[in-house]
Simulated assay, not measured.
Amino acid sequence: MFRISNNLVGILNLLTFLLSIPILGGGIWLSTRATSDCEKFLDKPVIAIGVFLMVVSLAGLIGACCRVTWLLWVYLFVMFLLIVLLFCFTVFAFVVTNKGAGKVVSNAGFREYRLGDYSNWLQKRVNNDKNWRKIKSCLQDSKICDHLAKETNNQDFKQFLATSLSPLQSGCCKPPTECEFTYQSATSWTKPALINSTNPDCTKWSNEGLCYDCQSCKAGVLANIKKDWKKVAVVNIIFLIFLLVVYSVGCCAFRNKEDNGRWKGGYP
């Protein structure tokens, strides 16, 4: 049983170690080749994840295969912390993404999004100037509005209304419908002489800068985050089950090693 448990721990951690190599390599590549705030925003978390996986998997691999007791202790302790943190994050992700939904626009194939509909925690994250500057850089690098302009080229207003827009396209590439701007193209609108709406996004819109600094754009980002975090939470649950299996096998290997040592010492 001890040998089987050790072999399983060794194999699982070998796979994790191999997985950490391309993750760490990708982070280092980003840090050396990054040319925008968007890319620089990603390199440190990717490197941290890669180093963490590499160190933990090495501890489990050496502890199990070389029967180093203190490394197995460290490995099991870190695994326990990881399981607790992952469980807390999964619950947190479901809680903070519970609020928020797009508002249906009359006679339109898209929804519009309001920042106030989302949780206060998420609102604070996107309202932080430092965070938003990096997010805005990512949005501009992705050229979502340029793609929308090409996709809707030569469309009249009625055809544009029937277009299915993503939350980012709806929030960042056009002014809110209530502003009553005159349509020229998907990313070009004419402001009325008098704006009757109290929505601050109506004054922030410009044909040059679009609506990247609008509340609707931030709401569109949160709509995307909500959808992505729901998917991440499901993946986390699967990964949590995997970690529990690995942790259980590691505990068996450690307990069997202790029992094996006692029998060799001449006492049950």
Rank of each mutant, 00 (worst) to 15 (best):
A108G: 02
M1A: 12
L82E: 00
G116K: 13
E178T: 07
L53K: 05
V91C: 10
W73E: 01
R114S: 09
C66M: 14
K40N: 09
Y247S: 03
V51H: 02
L244M: 15
R262L: 09
T187M: 08
K231H: 01
C172G: 03
C145D: 02
S166R: 09
L243C: 15
C202K: 06
A48W: 04
F242H: 04
D43A: 15
L161R: 15
F92D: 00
F242T: 11
Q215R: 12
T69S: 12
W263C: 12
S57P: 09
N207M: 14
C88R: 11
I11F: 14
F2M: 03
K143V: 11
A233E: 03
A223Q: 13
Q169V: 09
V234H: 05
F181I: 08
F92Y: 06
A253D: 13
V68S: 07
G50C: 05
L210Q: 07
S164A: 12
S137N: 03
G261C: 04
T187R: 08
L24I: 05
S166W: 03
C66A: 07
N98V: 09
C252V: 08
I47H: 00
F254W: 12
G50A: 06
Y183V: 01
G109E: 08
L71K: 04
R255Q: 13
K99D: 06
W29R: 04
I49F: 11
K136E: 12
L15C: 15
L61W: 13
G209M: 15
F89Y: 10
W229Q: 04
I135Q: 03
L243E: 14
V246E: 08
L15K: 08
K40I: 07
R111D: 03
K257G: 03
L42M: 06
T190H: 08
C38I: 05
L168D: 03
N154A: 10
V74W: 09
R114G: 01
K226S: 06
C88A: 12
A48I: 13
F254D: 00
D201G: 04
D156V: 01
R125T: 15
V56C: 10
L18Q: 03
T32H: 03
R125Y: 10
I237Q: 06
V104H: 11
Q215L: 00
P268H: 08
C217P: 11
Y75S: 06
P167Y: 12
W70G: 00
V232Y: 04
P176A: 00
W189R: 02
V74Q: 02
G209N: 15
V55S: 07
T163N: 05
A219P: 08
N260V: 00
T35S: 15
D259R: 10
R133T: 14
L12T: 15
L122Y: 07
S206C: 13
